[in-house]
């Protein structure tokens, strides 16, 4: 394998007494765009959080370009699940995007015109410039997700972790987000995305990580994302339709 961007070894994680992840081992290629796929409760969110020190792992090690998380913090962008924050918080879209820059601004300083400009450009890139001053609760789900994406973009990170950025968004937002993710990849960034729609996996991601408590299979999508591996991940009760043409079916969800 080429440059390893993320290396996880023997990772275990639990909520109180429930072991959610056991013995996770993986190495993610630098510059790859990986879809993390698995049933509800498989531990996908927990895996992202454990890698980012947001959830204490029991044992195991995580390294980014050979360095521990603490040293690489500033190079990592995280897009949590949309439901993880309070959208009634008194703030507007531009302000939320500016938060992505707080790590660069430093103590006792306020965001400058320059930072606001950068945030504004990221909003513009996500097609949200007309909503910069809109209170965040007045945005649709898709628009909120674009704001989160814009916030990740301003962080100008090397590694991105995104938790279901395409869940519950409209088709236009899905398209805008995928375009952005592919651009990040072109720029050489490493991106891991929790994804819930099996039908678009092959179209969107060059690598796939099949997860259910532990890594079921991980590798290039065309070799890994097979019917067999998928049913091993989901157990028997997977709903899998249009198995042959899954990569040409456009996905329009709501």
């Amino acid at each position: 394998m080429e440059d390893v961007a993320i290396k996880v070894e023997n990772l275990f994680a639990s909520y109180r007494k429930n072991t959610v992840l056991s013995d996770v081992n993986l190495a993610v290629e630098s510059g790859s765009l990986t879809g993390i796929v698995g049933p509800n409760g498989a531990g996908k969110s927990t895996l992202l959080k454990s890698m980012l020190n947001l959830h204490p792992s029991l044992t195991g090690s995580v390294a980014f370009f050979g360095q521990p998380f603490k040293k690489m913090k500033k190079k990592i962008g995280y897009v949590p699940q949309r439901g993880s924050v309070d959208w009634d918080f008194p703030t507007d879209a531009l302000d939320v995007v500016t938060m992505g820059l707080y790590g660069h601004i430093g103590w006792l300083k306020r965001p400058s015109r320059f930072h606001k400009e950068k945030a504004y450009q990221a909003l513009e890139k996500m097609g949200m410039k007309d909503y910069a001053k809109r209170q965040i609760s007045q945005l649709s789900g898709g628009q909120q997700q674009r704001v989160f994406l814009a916030r990740a973009l301003v962080q100008d990170a090397e590694l991105y972790f995104m938790d279901e950025p395409l869940a519950g968004v409209d088709a236009a937002t899905e398209h805008a987000i995928m375009t952005t993710l592919k651009e990040l990849k072109t720029l050489g960034k490493t991106v891991m995305v929790v994804h819930h729609d099996l039908q678009t996996v092959a179209e969107y991601f060059d690598h796939v990580l099949l997860l259910n408590q532990t890594v079921i299979e991980h590798g290039p999508t065309n070799q890994t994302f097979t019917k067999d591996n998928i049913s091993r991940t989901y157990g028997g009760n997977m709903r899998w339709m249009r198995e042959e043409d899954h990569d040409v079916v456009p996905s329009i969800k709501q």
């Binding site: 913090k73 500033k74 995280y78 993880s84 790590g103």
Partner: peptide, 8 residues
């Protein structure tokens, strides 16, 4: 969570 990941 974002704050923590930014090192705050």
């Amino acid at each position: 969570a974002l704050a923590a990941s930014l090192g705050i």
